[in-house]
């Protein structure tokens, strides 16, 4: 794991229990020394995930590239990469595929690897396509309701029911 403040290898993995929230920081010996000096402590990014995200995006990216990346929107759930960066939470399962390139370095930073090992679900009655379609249709239905287009909303609801009954019930 790399230091959150510079590109050296992180040697200190600190869980800060002093503030309102607990936060984890990963630092090289030099940056850790700065961090542990009380007068410096306030400047530190509070969330490790946010820290990693902002650092990751600063490296080797121009402002335009960053702006373009931020505007990338998942066609299934409608979350932009900017929203993910701000909140630290993804919008739907498809984001892991759609933002794959952007997420991979972050996942390496957190877990050190990118391949799942262990349990897999025993049942999956709904196909991947149907799962994505359901999420997309639910969003479209919500949008139709917001626009008070109830005819369209009812039509989408019927499509959702059809898809759902193709699965387990």
């Amino acid at each position: 794991m790399k230091c959150q403040r510079c590109d050296k290898q992180a040697a200190f993995h600190i869980t800060d229990l002093t503030g309102e929230t607990v936060s984890a920081v990963h630092l090289c010996p030099n940056c850790a020394k700065d961090y542990l000096e009380p007068q410096q402590a306030k400047k530190v990014e509070t969330s490790s995930l946010m820290g990693m995200l902002s650092k990751q995006l600063k490296v080797g990216q121009t402002a335009e590239q960053l702006a373009a990346l931020d505007q990338k929107v998942c066609p299934i759930c409608g979350i932009s990469f900017f929203e993910f960066r701000k909140q630290g939470r993804l919008g739907c399962p498809h984001d892991y595929t759609f933002f794959h390139e952007e997420l991979e370095p972050l996942i390496v930073n957190i877990h050190g690897v990118t391949e799942h090992k262990g349990k897999t679900p025993k049942h999956s009655s709904i196909s991947n396509e149907a799962q994505m379609q359901l999420i997309q249709l639910r969003r479209q239905m919500n949008e139709a309701v917001e626009k008070e287009d109830y005819e369209q909303a009812t039509h989408i609801r019927d499509l959702i029911r059809q898809l759902e009954s193709g699965g387990r019930e």
């Binding site: 409608g78 939470r89 399962p93 999956s124 799962q131 359901l134 999420i135 639910r138």
Partner: peptide, 8 residues
């Protein structure tokens, strides 16, 4: 699988 994550 068939629902968006809580944030969305």
């Amino acid at each position: 699988a068939e629902f968006p994550f809580i944030m969305r």
